[in-house]
Structures are given as structure tokens and as C-alpha cells.
Nucleic acid binder design. Structure first.
Length: 259
DNA sequence: AACGCGACCAACCGCCACATT
DNA sequence: AAATGTGGCGGTTGGTCGCGT
């Protein structure tokens, strides 16, 4: 009530981000971090609202994003967590390093949901559908069985399908042994992905800037082109890496095509 | 070759929770 | 305690692409 919008509609650009805008945002955040998203567009010289900048950064530009299809383990974890948390994508995403809530939400809505329906599982309640569905793909069976096998069934008390009420039971992690195991294996898997976090910490730490005596307008690198291109290269590398991992995984598990 | 359709995904919108004044 | 500001979340939309007919 009486609350003004996050940004003026006037003079604010909307729609897809251009490479130039990405570059500006990346450069600004690498140099300054994001103390206040509302101020970011002004300071970075972008005609965007702060919210848009934040979304662009967290969902797309952040260097620690994995991107690409979910691995089978990740997918299983998503299904499992969704059974307990419902559509709390941010909480689910928190358990999947390098994945964003938006990405998981998209993946859920596009194929995981359909996959569950094919398997005869209601994607909302995670209960078997009343009417028996058509034939089930073999890989899907594996997923379903493994889910019901290593899952404690604790979430199958009906109330668990979350309305916006209770505070996430999984965070208490009292009943999440299987999920923890999954997560652990996931984290182990993720070691194959280059750990950018360390680099990231270095590149964003005030110490590094401060020690060089460089001001906010002076990057620690010779030019910003370098880090920008490096970021893009990195993202492409991750995509390729994840895709090849998925391909191998599919081959080794005699997997069906995911699409 | 052209068209239609569905899948995918980036981005927007509105609301909410929390912090600050 | 109320008002206000900000960040974050989840739902939804719209554009693009690929595939089938």
C-alpha cells in the first residue's frame, strides 16, 4: 500500500540483455560488488532497474553457475526436495551448487514434471496418480524406484505438500538422511567442475583492490576486456563440461534421451 | 519449403518478509 | 508501532528454436 514500484517505468529498458549491458554489469560488480541493487544500474550506467540487474546477475552472469541439463543425481535430488519443500525453488536451489531457483523452476516445469506424470506420479503431491498412466520409460522407473526406495517416505504424509505455511522441515535435516547422501555425492561430483569460488573470492575481495591502491574505477587487471572474455569463456566451458558429463552419464546408464 | 506446435528458457511482475527509520 | 525501503521469491509470460507434418 502506497508502495512505489521498484523503479520508474520511464526510461527503464526491458527485455533481453545486450552483450554491452552484460559487460557493464559484470565490470561494475567485479569492481564494486553489489552493495545496493537499487543503485547498481545508475552507478553501472545501465538503463535497467535494480531488480532486473539482480536477476540478470544471479540467474545468468554469476560465474559459479553450472548451466546445462541436470545430472541424474541432481534431478533426483530436485524431485526429492520438491516432495518435501514444494515449490520453494530457492530452497531447492540452495542444495544444488551452481544452480539457480529460476533454472530449477524452469527445468521442473518443462520436463521433470512431465516425467513424473509419465511415471504415474502426481508432480504436486508426489503420490501415485489415480488413473494409471501409459507406459513408463525404463530410466524413469529407475528414478522412481530409487526415490521410493531410498526415500524415507516421511514426506508422504499428505500435509507435507506445502502450502506457504510451515518453515522448511528439510532445513532441520532430521529426516533427510537420503537427501544428505545424495547431496554429498553431488558435492563430490561437483569437484570435477573447476572451483571458481576461490578465484571469485580473490577477484572480489576488497583486499585485492585495496592493496593495489587502485580506486573503484581501476581494475586489478590490465583491462576489463580480459576478465569479461574470461568470464564468457568460463561459462562456455562449463556448458560444454556439463553437457559432456551428461552425455557420458547417459551412455553409461544406457540412458534415454532427455528430450 | 512452409507452417504449426511444443519445448525451452530468459525475463518480468506482483507479492512478501525483513530491516531500517 | 507504523511507515517505508530493499531484497528475494514464485508465478507467469513471451521470444526463439527445433521438430514433425
Amino acid at each position: 500500500m502506497g508502495r512505489r514500484p521498484c523503479c520508474d517505468k520511464l526510461g527503464v529498458k526491458k527485455g533481453p540483455w545486450s552483450a554491452e549491458e552484460d559487460k557493464k554489469l559484470i565490470n561494475f560488480i567485479l569492481a564494486n560488488g553489489h552493495c545496493c541493487w537499487r543503485a547498481v544500474p545508475t552507478l553501472a550506467g545501465l538503463l535497467r532497474c535494480g531488480k532486473s540487474c539482480r536477476l540478470r546477475w544471479t540467474n545468468y552472469l554469476r560465474p559459479d553457475l553450472k548451466r546445462g541439463l541436470l545430472s541424474e543425481a541432481e534431478e533426483r535430488l530436485v524431485i526429492d526436495l520438491h516432495a518435501r519443500l514444494g515449490n520453494r525453488w530457492s530452497k531447492i536451489a540452495a542444495s544444488l551448487p551452481g544452480r539457480t531457483d529460476n533454472e530449477i523452476k524452469n527445468l521442473w516445469n518443462t520436463h521433470i514434471k512431465k516425467k513424473l506424470v509419465k511415471m504415474g506420479i502426481d508432480p504436486v503431491t508426489h503420490q501415485p496418480l489415480k488413473q494409471q498412466p501409459s507406459p513408463v520409460p525404463s530410466q524413469s522407473i529407475v528414478t522412481a524406484e530409487s526415490r521410493s526406495d531410498d526415500q524415507t517416505h516421511s514426506h508422504e504424509h499428505e500435509g507435507q505438500v506445502p502450502s506457504s505455511d510451515n518453515t522448511s522441515p528439510a532445513e532441520a535435516s532430521s529426516d533427510s538422511g537420503s537427501t544428505d547422501a545424495l547431496l554429498s555425492s553431488l558435492l563430490e561430483d561437483s569437484t570435477s567442475v573447476p572451483q571458481l569460488d576461490d578465484i571469485w573470492q580473490l577477484t572480489t575481495s576488497e583486499d585485492n583492490y585495496g592493496s593495489t591502491g587502485a580506486g573503484a574505477d581501476q581494475m586489478p587487471w590490465d583491462d576489463n576486456e580480459g576478465i569479461y572474455e574470461w568470464l564468457l569463456d568460463y561459462q562456455e566451458f562449463i556448458v560444454a563440461d556439463v553437457e559432456s558429463e551428461n552425455l557420458e552419464g547417459e551412455r553409461s546408464t544406457n540412458g534415454t534421451s532427455s528430450r
